[in-house]
Design a protein around this nucleic acid. Structure first.
Lengths: 319, 319
DNA sequence: TTAGTTTACGGCGACCGTAAACATA
DNA sequence: TATGTTTACGGTCGCCGTAAACTAA
């Protein structure tokens, strides 16, 4: 181990080393951190060992399969995060004049939302800042923002408790939809119980498939058990519904285009999920880089505009 | 200029670079910073240029004789100071268990105080922490704490306005003293005007010699013009007074040993300067390293103990 | 085995010191 | 001319990648 050849007098810790430590800790793995940083696991291991040797304190407990910070490690990581934040803030303050944003922003959102809403918004911000790279991670789970170094995520509905920071963007109910062709062939359900005689397409969120829908109206809530021949992510569920494969339960937000253009029709209109929130979620950092703020602006704007169309559609349908 | 060979992708800024920038700014000179850091001016120049190239912003305006931060430079330096503080704080928090202090502490104090008070206190703290180096800068001016990278200074009397942080330690009046042998030969003065017939030894503070003394008593203040054959720093003035070369005006704090042991005798006892404060002065940093706090404790303790002896002596003399 | 961490080693290049050139008061 | 900054250049060593060894699940 060549760490002990170092002459400690000249020794320094680099901002890059601190970012590496944070990525190792938040990723929970040196190998994952190496992938994220574009390094080899060997380099990451050496860097961690180097910093540990310099500070004279063990920062991570390692087992062959996992790695987690020691008590001292947490203290150092807190310091590293503060230092990184302050330094990036300083750089941005000084380089701010150069309005050309650069770097990489990782965004996570449900697949369907990504394709319909984020993609155009991101294309726009990307055209404005050619040196900015936006990496999209379609995913239905919010749990891994830190581990996967996601800068921003879009999430529907209730958020699990976590150390993340969330901002509510809009609210939009979920509704049941089917294609005109399907309804022509199978007829429309008029009560929740009618759904038993219909084909339904359901989501598979975070592993487990959805086995029941809860439908609400003024009178109360109906729990409907489901037996679904088709089961996939939100994007596929919508595609299948459009293709006439069955009745789907989707956020109005995702199907507003299809409703406006007649590809889908709402069924059981008296029943909704009640308003469901859409949130922007961020890893809990004090300081949000300009490049993330730019992407945030674009996405938030697109979502706001789309939500307005949803509310107009609801008013129109009520008449 | 080899800066432009660097592949900016791998680029990082080190904590050491930030400390270098701060030292250049506070020292107002690359060469001075180089001396303080144990580097060559060439290395400092290269490091500054390197960081400037990395950030893409000029941090210092240079003329061949002076160097001062640009507007962006001030912003970056603020960031650097914050980062350095936070990082050192982190290190200390984690390394605190190892009670072995190390590093260097630069202390500035008037020469006489250094020899009589600081030296024993520092010897003690130095014995406790063998890897700690204390560098003493005897100096009568407080203006250059930042420029000369002084960690702590002891100052008498009124402090000039500055961006420094001062803590008042004790108060102690200045008095007039002479040796018994001198008084035997020349007699004691009984009024301030009598001083015209005596030899006096005066201080030379910050260049200009002291040309008059202000003596206060219940009735009012006397300004006495001086013509001094001997003029030096506080230590020399005391030595000369002990050697019978004349009457000196010293802080009681500096001559308490000599009074107690009879080497000096107070003259014109009805007149004092009124209470004069002794301050500990620090460069204005949010965070004071443990090594500085340790030296501070030792010096402050020694000064406090000595001041108590002064007050006891005053009470005793009043009887 | 498998999937991760650590060690060994070779090579590139960052950064320092030396020394000389350069630029103003 | 004197003093501080910058450039040029050679050498050292920090740090990365490759590849193999190691270790617990």
């Amino acid at each position: 181990m060549d760490v002990f050849q170092y002459s400690f007098d000249n020794w320094v810790v680099k901002i890059q080393d601190m970012e590496l430590l944070v990525r190792v800790a938040e990723g929970g793995s040196m190998t994952r951190a190496a992938r994220q940083l574009g390094l080899t696991p060997a380099a990451v291991s050496a860097a961690v060992g180097r910093v540990e040797a310099f500070i004279g304190v063990r920062l991570f407990e390692r087992t062959t399969r996992s790695i987690h910070p020691t008590e001292d490690g947490f203290a150092v990581l807190d310091g590293c995060r503060d230092v990184i934040d302050r330094w990036h803030q300083t750089l941005e303050q000084v380089q701010g004049g150069a309005r050309q944003l650069s770097g990489t922003v990782h965004v996570s959102a449900p697949a369907d939302t990504t394709y319909q809403v984020l993609e155009p918004a991101i294309a726009e911000v990307s055209a404005e800042h050619p040196r900015l790279q936006v990496v999209v991670h379609p995913s239905d789970t919010v749990a891994h923002l830190h581990r996967d170094a996601i800068d921003m995520a879009i999430r529907y509905g209730q958020l699990p408790d976590s150390a993340l920071f969330a901002r509510r963007l809009v609210t939009c109910p979920s509704i049941l939809v089917a294609s005109p062709s399907y309804l022509e062939e199978h007829g429309s359900p008029h009560t929740p119980d009618d759904l038993r005689d219909h084909r339904v397409v359901t989501l598979r969120l975070s592993g487990a498939a959805v086995l029941s829908w809860t439908l609400r109206q003024a009178g109360g809530a109906h729990e409907v058990a489901l037996e679904s021949p088709l089961c996939g992510d939100g994007f596929l569920a919508r595609r299948w519904a459009i293709a006439g494969r069955g009745i789907a339960r989707k956020s109005l937000f995702d199907v507003i285009d299809d409703l406006e253009e007649g590809r889908l029709v709402r069924v059981l209109s008296d029943y909704t999920s009640g308003p469901e929130a859409i949130h922007a979620v961020f890893p809990s950092r004090r300081y949000l880089p300009a490049r993330v703020r730019a992407v945030d602006r674009a996405i938030t704007g697109a979502i706001g505009a789309r939500a307005q169309r949803c509310h107009r559609w609801l008013e129109h349908a009520a008449r």
